[in-house]
């Protein structure tokens, strides 16, 4: 029992860090779903591209010799910035090429197209990195190596503080944008009713592009933060993480922005605690290797019993 109590603070920090990454990725799923009622299956690959963009930026800074001389937060901001820009542009491009032509086709077609994009991007990144670096598993340079000791059993690494701070700033900015800004209002209108939105003079196509830009940009930022935190990335890193972020979005109520944040944090905590305690609880029969099963089981259970999620509104089918 003592061991569990001692582990608790550290697990809390790990869980929250992972939870913030999930939350930002979940925002991308939820925003696109809110507007198009479409699961952007390729969002996990946008995240992965963000991770590569950020890592490549840091590697470039390192090889050019700037990384040692510049303050670490600046390097982090630069990497996140590059991640946001590249992923955001990629998101808009993908929407134009693969989703816009099938917007009026049956939903199944759009979803399958998204699966195609996801597969294409995985191998495209692998190809590019393979030709460029001759390896497609990259390790991200260490940015902050100090940590702050709070209790005997609790140590917060400095990079976690920066990661969480950036995540919170982005979430607040997004909430303000969607809540107050003119374009944010337009986004909410389009989410409610595309045709009426078009009638009152909203450029629906532009709003959809903007949604993809913001959602993908957030995904890219999350990717960079993820690579800084876990320091090893591959083209296939997005798949499982994307599934979990989607679970988080569903858990919070898909289409709901605060829901995605809450769902992400909850799922991060559940996963870290689950991985730690599954083995203890079952006497070693089921261990941490089943933590992915845990996330999927949660997804299935929510979808069956409360498909609207924690903060989402129940959708009534109109005839």
């Amino acid at each position: 029992m003592d061991m569990i109590v001692q582990m608790l603070p550290q697990l809390l920090i790990d869980g929250l860090t992972l939870g913030f990454v999930y939350a930002i990725v979940a925002l991308g799923y939820t925003m696109v779903y809110g507007i198009l009622e479409f699961i952007n299956f390729a969002h996990s690959e946008i995240f992965m591209v963000g991770a590569f963009a950020g890592t490549e930026t840091l590697l470039f800074l390192q090889s050019a010799g700037y990384l040692e001389n510049m303050p670490a937060p600046l390097a982090l901001f630069l990497a996140v910035g590059v991640g946001i820009i590249l992923s955001g542009l990629l998101g808009v491009t993908v929407e134009r090429i693969a989703y816009k032509p099938v917007r009026h086709a049956p939903k199944l077609v759009a979803f399958i197209s998204a699966i195609g994009v996801s597969f294409f991007l995985q191998d495209a990144v692998r190809l590019i990195e393979g030709l460029w670096k001759n390896a497609f598993y990259l390790s991200t340079p260490q940015l902050f190596d100090s940590s702050i000791q709070i209790m005997d059993t609790m140590k917060i690494p400095v990079k976690v503080i920066y990661i969480v701070a950036i995540a919170i700033v982005m979430m607040v900015a997004l909430s303000l944008f969607v809540g107050k800004h003119k374009w944010g209002k337009a986004m909410r209108t389009v989410a409610q009713d595309k045709d009426t939105a078009a009638l009152v003079g909203i450029n629906v196509d532009a709003v959809i592009s903007l949604t993809f830009l913001i959602g993908a940009g957030l995904g890219g930022a999350a990717g960079t933060l993820f690579s800084v935190q876990y320091t090893l990335i591959s083209p296939y890193v997005g798949f499982i993480l994307g599934m979990k972020a989607f679970t988080a979005a569903v858990l919070g109520g898909i289409g709901s922005i605060p829901g995605a944040m809450l769902g992400g944090l909850l799922l991060g905590l559940v996963e870290v605690f689950g991985a730690a305690f599954l083995g203890i609880a079952t006497g070693g029969v089921i261990g941490a290797e089943y933590k992915d099963v845990l996330a999927f089981t949660i997804l299935i259970i929510i979808l069956i019993f409360k498909p609207s999620g924690l903060l989402g509104k129940a959708v009534v089918e109109k005839v």
């Binding site: 699966i115 195609g116 191998d123």
Partner: peptide, 26 residues
């Protein structure tokens, strides 16, 4: 370069097939 070996890029090919089919011949 050995990284360009087409047999390693099944996902790329399948992804392209799915996108092209969905966009042009759903």
């Amino acid at each position: 370069p050995s990284q360009l070996d087409p047999a390693k890029y099944e996902k790329l090919v399948f992804g392209l097939i799915l996108i092209l089919m969905c966009v042009f011949r759903p």
